[in-house]
Design a protein around this nucleic acid. Structure first.
Lengths: 96, 96
DNA sequence: AAATTTGGTTTATATTATAAACTTGTTTAC
DNA sequence: GTAAACAAGTTTATAATATAAACCAAATTT
């Protein structure tokens, strides 16, 4: 009846990050920070978890002299997101 | 961009419970247990939280000699659920 | 009358989310 | 030229959550 919801995605911030990356090809750390309004520390932690699970790819480079972190979604991430949304429908769709 | 997700509903088990109650007028503890496959302890705790928030109403009676706990959703619960689903759309709807 | 079952509740623990504090380097103000 | 403020993060500590294990009271079965 109720499929399990992938705990990695069932987190407001991680879901927001993946949601952003789904539609954007690539995003900088600061962009994610602006869009999600979350603290840098929180984002840093959640990005690492998503990366460990290989839901996203993280590339650390430099923009001029400052560090620049770019994130993008992986195939695995897209699949996981789609499965999560599908599972979620069972919870939020009205009636049986 | 991303509205906050009501933490009370953003929990697999509590969401499942509310989801059940939305479409069923009234449900017994054991029914919830069967449908969610969760442990009784976990359900007990989560029901109490939902009740504290006045998202659900809990009525303790007896079925013959055994205790019987009946739950039903409140107006507040319905509203919260609807708001949660609406907020969630922003996360799971593809593209901007 | 001991063991098992029903219908839960309480408590302990493991996991999470989150913010605060810290780091490394850069730019600006004095 | 050096102290203060800023950029872009990371690490660590704490608070909140989810969850299961242990427990309880009464009823039933063996």
């Amino acid at each position: 009846m109720f499929q399990n919801l992938d705990p990695l995605l069932h987190s407001q911030l991680r879901l927001a990050i993946v949601s952003l990356l789904i539609s954007v090809e690539e995003a900088e750390f600061t962009y994610i920070k602006e869009k999600t309004k979350a603290t840098a520390g929180n984002i840093s932690v959640q990005i690492e978890k998503l990366q460990e699970a290989e839901y996203i790819k993280v590339e650390k480079t430099f923009k001029g002299k400052y560090p620049l972190t770019k994130c993008s979604i992986t195939k695995k991430g897209i699949k996981a997101f789609e499965a999560y949304v599908k599972a979620l429908q069972q919870y939020i769709q009205p009636a049986t």
